[in-house]
């Protein structure tokens, strides 16, 4: 049951990213900013840290591929980047205590790495002509601000929910 609910939660985040962009009134922020919601990535990352790492990486693969097919139409970028960054973040977390604050900072770092990797790939295949400094100011910083707000809202509920999930999984074995 719990596994099913987590699948539902992640799918909901997948859809929510698109709905959020459609409904976001353009006049609440500077028109030149590009804000990218990473709700899906944050959810999978928290799950991989507090729940189960390997299942989290599999979710990264599956939803990365879905993201590529459904949204970006360039196969491979998020399919590769999601699991890779989730793996690296889990490696980093081994060195720290699993504090909500530390996990939040690490997930912001993860989003930064994800944005930069995707930017470099997009740049290589000539889908953008944006230079790095405007990428930094127009896209990366607003994106980090938006996702920081999201993390502040969900971090604690996610921690409790996923830890409970990990506990029930351990009890079953």
């Amino acid at each position: 049951m719990s596994k099913f609910l987590i699948g539902c939660l992640i799918s909901l985040m997948f859809i929510l990213e698109s709905i959020f962009l459609e409904l976001l009134p353009a006049n609440v922020y500077d028109k030149n900013w590009i804000v990218v919601p990473y709700f899906l990535f944050i959810t999978i990352l928290f799950f991989s840290i507090y729940g189960s790492r390997n299942v989290g990486i599999i979710y990264g693969f599956v939803f990365g591929l879905l993201f590529d097919i459904v949204y970006t139409e360039i196969l491979g970028i998020y399919f590769f980047a999601f699991p890779f960054i989730i793996y690296i973040c889990n490696k980093i977390m081994k060195a720290f205590h699993q504090n909500v604050f530390v996990v939040s900072v690490v997930s912001l770092l993860g989003i930064t790495a994800l944005e930069i990797i995707v930017y470099e790939i997009i740049k290589v295949i000539h889908l953008t002509t944006m230079d790095f400094s405007s990428f930094l100011y127009l896209r990366l910083i607003p994106t980090l601000l938006l996702n920081l707000i999201f993390i502040v809202i969900v971090a604690y509920p996610y921690k409790r929910y996923f830890e409970k999930y990990a506990q029930t999984m351990r009890d079953n074995f």
Partner: peptide
């Protein structure tokens, strides 16, 4: 009617 928008916004789809 529009049903979804690409959140990554590199390729505006």
């Amino acid at each position: 009617t529009i049903i979804r928008r690409n959140p990554s916004q590199w390729n505006e789809l």
